[in-house]
Amino acid sequence: MTLSGFLADAREFLPILAEGVGVTVALTLCALVLATALGVVWALLRTSGNRWLEAPVRWLVNVIRGIPIIVQLFYIYFVLPDLGIDLSAFQAGVIGLGVAYSAYMGEVFRAGILAVDHGTIEAAESLGLSRLRILTRVVLPQAVRIVLPPFGNNLIMLLKDSSQASVITVAEISTQSRLIASSTFKNQEVFTLAALLYLCLSIPLILLVARLEKRFGRR
């Protein structure tokens, strides 16, 4: 593989792969929104102090964490239609990845809520701040700072795990590169490009998380 040959191939394959990049980004962002929303719900239920809510959610989270993402994707894409629920590959990918990652996000948020120093809440109470002010000015800012770095790490994992949606034919980077490779037999060139594209997406996120860790670890 010469450099000029590689560049020529890259120019030929990149337009097709770029479509895959778009799908990867869209899939990751949609799954992130779903995982975050569900994760907040799990975390609030698990810290509610009501054991009739806490126990079922703990089990649900364990079940989700205990099944490989690929099996969850198969289930949603191939089994749900038998039950009358038809989903596009992209929709199934968003739901599968979103539900799977909601378990990890929920644990991150729960840890963040529990990690807020109760003494600071008492100090705010003793100063006569209202409940709403205590939540918005004392609890949430601290919880967000605690949660951002692990949240970012989950996002990086989710970006890479979005490639698993290729098993249910979502046309993201991995699917597109496999298609090109099988028709051109240029495995080395195509998969090198795919790896570079993932790195272009993930390295900025990795640097951002490192910065967040440094910034918020200090306070």
Binding site: D117, L127, R145, R219
Partner: peptide, 16 residues
């Protein structure tokens, strides 16, 4: 509470 303030053993400052 606005009439009586409290100072705690562990300071309890807002870290953020």
């Amino acid at each position: 509470r606005r009439q009586v303030s409290m100072v705690f053993q562990r300071f309890n400052l807002f870290p953020h």
